[in-house]
């Protein structure tokens, strides 16, 4: 780990002012960069891997952004709220998709350190990215190629990717958030803006070297999460029963009226270079009579153009089955 300076800020303005480069959005950080650190579970991990070497860390974990409030039908969650605290909050007790996306992630210890702001900004787990000795990685070294294409890619993405980079966005929470139409409030040197979580991340097939759209000094201050009038659920499929990222996952929000899918939103995890909103599946589902056959059709539509390499061959099929299962369980359709 390269030497760095550590400072802690007490207010949002000071935080924004401290960060003058856009390193938080870039895939790599160097000694000239100043970046935020919250729980540190991504930031320090990547520094320990030797992939990141920022010159200054600005600790934002103690900013007064630790409240959860219900504002009409929208949950407003401070960026410094930990995953554990949000999962335990009474406001999410009935919002299964959100609660389970948190409780099925990482471990109890990590959840009591990690913030929701940091979670949505976590970086890919691709081990070629995370080992600076690997020379072929377009994310770290644009133009160098992608070692994962012919290498070990079992945990890699098949949507929003091409042969340039197949890195997965591994957040469970972010998949729930895009499915719930959540927004992030940002505060920057020039004031604030609010954008959909769905617009926060940059797809690998667009620019592998950039992970999100934060401008220099922009701080995530809050998540705004509309609470839907629908049933929801999150299913995570992984080899190990716990403490593992998703091989595939599905977030489903659905309201069935007289057998018809009056409202439906679907997200997929473990398969996208960004938290994946399954809009193609939704198109097939919306306003239709809920049935297993329809779910199969919707899942197939979403995965139709998946980009696979030998290591990810099985993923579209597993993702299809994961989605069908979760649509079935949330809608309680039996045939």
């Amino acid at each position: 780990m390269h030497p760095f300076t550590y400072t802690r800020v007490d207010d949002v303005e000071a935080a924004s002012a401290a960060v003058t480069t856009d390193a938080v959005s870039r895939a790599v950080q160097g000694p000239d960069d100043t970046v935020f650190i919250a729980g540190g579970t991504t930031q320090l991990d990547l520094m320990r891997d030797g992939v990141w070497s920022p010159g200054t860390l600005v600790d934002v974990s103690r900013l007064p952004l630790a409240d959860v409030e219900l504002d009409e039908d929208t949950l407003v969650v401070g960026a410094a709220v930990t995953m554990a605290d949000l999962a335990r909050h009474e406001a999410v007790a009935d919002l299964d998709v959100l609660r389970d996306s948190l409780l099925l992630a990482a471990s109890p210890q990590l959840r009591s350190m990690a913030t929701v702001g940091g979670n949505v900004l976590q970086r890919t787990r691709c081990r070629y990215f995370r080992d600076p000795e690997v020379t072929q990685c377009n994310k770290r070294r644009p133009g160098s190629g992608c070692a994962a294409i012919e290498g070990t890619a079992r945990t890699h993405a098949v949507l929003g990717v091409d042969a340039g980079c197949i890195a997965v966005h591994a957040s469970d929470l972010a998949v729930a958030l895009v499915t719930l139409d959540a927004r992030v409030r940002l505060h920057g040197p020039d004031g604030g803006r609010t954008i959909p979580v769905a617009d926060l991340h940059v797809r690998a097939d667009v620019d592998p070297a950039r992970d999100n759209v934060l401008a220099a000094g922009e701080l995530v201050t809050h998540l705004e999460i509309p609470v839907p009038d629908a049933r929801t659920g999150y299913l995570k499929v992984r080899d190990r029963a716990s403490y593992e990222f998703a091989l595939t996952s599905a977030a489903v929000v659905a309201r069935v009226e007289d057998g018809i899918l009056a409202h439906v939103a679907v997200g997929l995890g473990g398969v996208g270079s960004v938290p994946w909103r399954a809009t193609r599946a939704e198109e097939v589902l919306r306003g239709q009579r809920a049935s297993l056959a329809l779910f199969e059709q919707a899942a197939a539509a979403e995965l139709a153009d998946a980009f696979t390499v030998p290591g990810t061959d099985f993923k579209p099929e597993l993702a299809r089955r994961t989605l069908v299962r979760q649509l079935r369980d949330v809608t309680e359709v039996t045939a």
Binding site: R127, Y128, D239, R240, A241, S242, Y243, E244
Partner: peptide, 15 residues
């Protein structure tokens, strides 16, 4: 390619 305890999976309690 998986020389890491998060990538080399040993059984956890829940398994």
């Amino acid at each position: 390619t998986n020389a890491h305890m998060a990538d080399y999976l040993i059984a956890v309690n829940a398994d």
